[in-house]
Design a binder for these strands. Structure first.
Lengths: 159, 159
DNA sequence: GTTTAAAATTTCAAGCTTGAAATAAATTCT
DNA sequence: AGAATTTATTTCAAGCTTGAAATTTTAAAC
């Protein structure tokens, strides 16, 4: 028997904490799997994949600061990742005419080819990893996750 | 209108990919929030909190290798975190009688006190961050996440 | 009892991540 | 125009993370 809580509020607090631990276990596990596959099968990393995915969606290029905002990581972080992608010939920086401060990050042709291959694998991996859920369950789950997201976004942004 | 997919399998693959992106957004967002609060309000980090939580659950101490397995991180990783906790007087290493290779990591009295305070805040933070969900919704969500977990654990462990 | 293999840790290099400080260029104010 | 502010980006130090290599100790095999 579960010990009865002192109040309903305490009970739902425990329920939410339990939910958080499960969510964390699920996403950490999937993420670890994706990282391993990217590394072992494709000699790359999740941060590099994320940057390439962002650039693939913006063929005209993204300013470093926009890239950073889009991915919700620090400026210094994208600097390093784009540097390393550039070393491998997968991305490059393009000067912005009229603003000597800014650079557009873009995928090279080689980068586009590489990303297209990765993206297909990525979708398959995720599909397999979440294969325990039916389409209906996936949709229910997505709906609840989106509801939870609304709340965090609301409390995130105390404007 | 959504473009109709070539097959039901493709549709559910897209549904699962969408689910993954939402899950990632939710957990990354909450995690970032927790990291920020631990940092700004308590001058610590999530990895340190995780190690302290593991040690708090095992008052008799945990071997470094068990700690590493429990948290699913590398051996070298816990070495560094326990080093830094020890520098701050929150944890220490105890020799294992009869095995000169092994060490038990344990919280100090100071570490226990510090963790107890953190744990209370942590539960409240999570409760707030997931506050958009009713108790019923939390339970439904937990159930579905657990179902998804079973699958990943199954495919994770190709024994 | 040696040799061999296994187990427990640490060390290390490389990459990721952050926030803060430093540069440099554009914009705004007076 | 000249000064002050804002914007775009890089650099840096510190910590996290991993897998691989190195150490040390224990256990197993012969």
């Amino acid at each position: 028997m579960t010990p009865d809580p002192a109040s309903p509020a305490e009970a739902s607090s425990k329920t939410r904490l339990r939910l958080w631990l499960r969510l964390l276990k699920l996403t950490s596990g999937i993420e670890a799997d994706l990282r391993r596959k990217l590394r072992d099968d494709h000699d790359t990393t999740l941060p590099r994949f994320d940057v390439m995915a962002a650039l693939a969606r913006h063929p005209q290029g993204l300013k470093m600061s926009d890239l950073s905002r889009y991915l919700k990581v620090s400026n210094g972080n994208v600097t390093g990742i784009v540097d390393r992608l550039a070393e491998d010939g997968l991305a490059l920086r393009v000067a912005v005419p009229g603003d000597k401060r800014a650079n557009l990050a873009r995928l090279t042709a080689k980068g586009i080819t590489a990303f297209d291959a990765l993206a297909g694998h990525h979708e398959n991996w995720v599909n397999d990893l979440l294969g325990g859920l039916t389409a209906d369950e996936s949709q229910t789950l997505t709906g609840l996750v989106e509801k939870a997201l609304n709340q965090t976004e609301a409390s995130d942004d105390p404007s």
